[in-house]
Design a protein around this nucleic acid. Structure first.
Ligand SMILES: [Mn+2]
Ligand SMILES: [Mn+2]
Ligand SMILES: [Zn+2]
Ligand SMILES: [Zn+2]
Lengths: 144, 144
DNA sequence: TTAAATATGCAATAAAGTTGCATTTATGTA
DNA sequence: TACATAAATGCAACTTTATTGCATATTTAA
């Protein structure tokens, strides 16, 4: 995870550049929003926060972040898709997403537990593993 | 998992009755379809299979099965929701869903690996666990 | 057999995701 | 700096998925 909380424009620019994305106001704002947030974000979170941008633009911003490896999509059972920041080690080629996700049934927030790694798992003979996702549902520390 | 593959009407009736659901043709047909299938099913799978029923009826059939503990919802990152048969031990009160789900990126099928249990996991202090889901993506034995 | 409770079909609506295209903006090069 | 090119944005339209209301049909228990 990128360490700083209050980013300066240069830092945002660097992140976008290093992922081969053009620097635009929308992308910088959305990226900053992700960096300031602890929890995962959904498209509608962005729409509420950034009324100045068209929802399609925000949709495509999320897609460009996904494709370039800035964020990752978090599986869920219902509602809109949620997105979390990738580790700094992630790239479009090689992702490093072996952390557990937690969804609080009280406040609804979805969190990346970056230092809680998904345990190893074995598959039946003949199965090939490409990715493993673990989603824990419950009540978070704040809501408990 | 219910053992039989080709159910007789009585067996279907028993299952529905034991979950306190009224016996209807639609429910029996949908339940049979679940029992015959190995993979998880989506609403659109049902719509394709049962053109004689309104899609809202199929939607509510899935909901009644969900609420009564006949099926469970499987988290995914994209596309329509998938549903898998519950174990016989499941009830509305107590669910027993600690098995791994596998999604094949080739054929798209989602499978309940009923005998592959989700490994134990610990949360940070203060978190309460209510449910744990594990979804493995990859290539299934048939597609490999 | 009948009354009450529930399921179904149909219409309408909401929510979420996606595409095409004209216009604007960003970026590399002259 | 100016320009050409490639990419991003806004807007409209559309698709898919999910949800609700209500009249009618069916199931169930008395
Ligand atoms: Mn995450
Ligand atoms: Mn399952
Ligand atoms: Zn919470
Ligand atoms: Zn497969």
């Amino acid at each position: 995870m990128y360490i700083c909380r209050m980013e300066n424009t240069d830092h945002l620019k660097e992140i976008l550049e290093s992922h081969k994305l053009r620097i635009t106001a929308c992308r910088k704002n959305v990226l900053q929003f992700f960096l300031n947030r602890k929890a995962a974000l959904s498209q509608s979170d962005l729409e509420n926060q950034f009324t100045q941008y068209d929802r399609v633009t925000l949709y495509r911003t999320l897609n460009s972040f996904l494709d370039s490896g800035i964020i990752h999509k978090i599986p869920n059972s219902q509602g809109a898709a949620a997105y979390g920041l990738c580790h700094e080690t992630c790239s479009p080629d090689h992702h490093d997403h072996n952390h557990i996700h937690f969804k609080c049934n009280q406040c609804g927030q979805i969190q990346c537990l970056d230092d809680k790694l998904v345990p190893e798992v074995t598959m039946p003979k003949g199965y090939m593993i490409e990715a493993v996702n673990m989603i824990v549902d419950g009540v978070c520390a704040k809501c408990a």
